[in-house]
């Protein structure tokens, strides 16, 4: 079994994204996430460069790796051509593959994202579809959205969209064979396997917390992680 540090080093994206870091801090200075959270891309570069297995595992179990918005601003500035945004993407994948993500609050929310965006893309062919942004679960969208949601047929028609109908145009219904192609891509590229792992580790965590007794009754856990 390769260590986590070795697995990082084997990932081509990782190799491309860290050459050597001089701790200049320009990535942290440009990072929007660092402005709002206790998060510093410079420190991420420092930890992975140091290559200490325990520290890297602690990172994979922490909220830290989930703060990044993947905007890639850091890439545009680094004087050593590193890219912490990509390093984060690799760390996240290993955290999901190994189940470390369930050890942090933001990590646990991976389940919500997987169940929302992850299933929407396979069901509708869109990452976000108006149908799933139900005002009941998304009070943050406010009353205007609630009105749009209720009147979406008419609203989208006026916007010249082609909501859920065959043919061309924005938000058109994606044809079955196209959807099947998308599912095949997820299957062969390991996307489905990763989704299954997120479900599996989340259930194990839910069981450990006494919030679920079988994988099909995760409601309490979902409620818990939505509000924690």
């Amino acid at each position: 079994m390769p260590t986590i540090t070795e697995r990082l080093a084997q990932d081509v994206r990782f190799k491309e994204s860290i050459n050597s870091c001089i701790n200049c801090g320009v990535c942290t200075a440009i990072c929007a996430a660092a402005e709002f959270y206790d998060y510093s891309p410079r420190q991420i570069a420092g930890i992975v460069q140091e290559g200490n297995e325990e520290k890297i595992i602690a990172l994979l179990k922490s909220d830290t790796i989930w703060f990044c918005g993947q905007c890639m601003s850091c890439k545009t500035r680094c004087p050593r051509n590193n890219c912490v945004g990509i390093i984060i993407a690799v760390l996240r994948k290993i955290s999901q593959e190994e189940g470390y993500f369930v050890e942090s609050r933001m990590g646990r929310q991976q389940l919500l994202i997987k169940r929302n965006i992850g299933s929407t893309i396979l069901k509708y062919g869109y990452c976000i579809h108006p149908e799933i942004v139900n005002p009941e679960y998304h009070p943050e969208q406010g009353p205007t959205w609630e009105w749009v949601y209720k009147n979406k047929e008419k609203v989208y028609e006026r916007m010249n969209a082609n909501l859920d109908k065959p043919g061309s145009g924005t938000l058109r219904k994606i044809e079955q064979d196209t959807l099947q192609e998308l599912r095949d891509i997820f299957e062969v590229s390991g996307g489905v396997e990763l989704f299954d792992k997120i479900e599996k580790y989340s259930f194990e965590k839910a069981a450990e917390m006494g919030l679920a007794s079988n994988p099909d009754s995760m409601d309490n856990y979902v409620k818990y992680i939505s509000n924690e």
Partner: peptide
Amino acid sequence: RVSEVSENKDKSIQLKAEDTLSGLP
């Protein structure tokens, strides 16, 4: 290292950096 600068209305300059020794942007 300074990441970027912008101009304020009064033409003064706003800069961004990380004070890496205290670890704060």
